[in-house]
């Protein structure tokens, strides 16, 4: 299990290859790559701020909970901080499990939690100026789907 905050760009393909390599018991690896959007030209740059030490710990707790809930073999979360240009990868999540359903659900849940509850502060800077972004109503309801204990576990 690994959580990384990184200020420079990353290569999602290379991360996925490294994460997948050497697994003999995991039948499924699901990964998700999130990209920064230009929002119809209104965003020139996203600035993502984290609280060093605090943000990693919060994400690690999310990852640990996902490992337990979905019986994962491993999980990787890599999140960019600092300035991010539209089109650049901003987040990468990978989950490895014995079977695909758990891996899909873990990646889905981790992303829902990251998008709504991870301690980041995100500013969009564009031609119209700068504005702080808050989670959307959809982000919040997506995350709430996972707050009920899974009836199957």
């Amino acid at each position: 299990m690994k959580v990384v905050l990184q200020s420079g760009p990353f290569d999602p393909g290379a991360l996925l290859t490294a994460f997948t390599t050497g697994r003999r018991e995991s039948g499924a690896v699901v990964s998700f790559t999130g990209l920064a959007r230009a929002e119809g030209g209104s965003t020139d740059i996203l600035e993502l701020e984290a609280y060093e030490g605090f943000t990693e710990t919060a994400i690690l707790e999310m990852a640990e909970a996902a490992v337990k809930r979905f019986h994962l073999d491993d999980v990787l979360v890599l999140h960019r901080v600092g300035p991010i240009a539209p089109g650049e990868a901003i987040v990468f999540v990978a989950a490895a499990a014995a079977h695909r359903r758990e891996a899909f659900e873990a990646a889905d849940q981790l992303m829902d939690y990251l998008k709504s509850r991870a301690p980041f502060w995100k500013k969009s800077v564009g031609p119209g100026g700068a504005r702080w972004i808050e989670p959307t109503a959809r982000d919040k309801t997506d995350a709430e789907r996972w707050d009920q204990p899974d009836p199957l576990t």
């Binding site: 993502l48 609280y51 987040v91 509850r117 980041f120 995100k122 972004i133 989670p135």
Partner: peptide
């Protein structure tokens, strides 16, 4: 001491 406004998420 850190003051944390509502979080944006990632």
């Amino acid at each position: 001491v850190a003051f944390l406004p509502p979080m944006s998420g990632g």
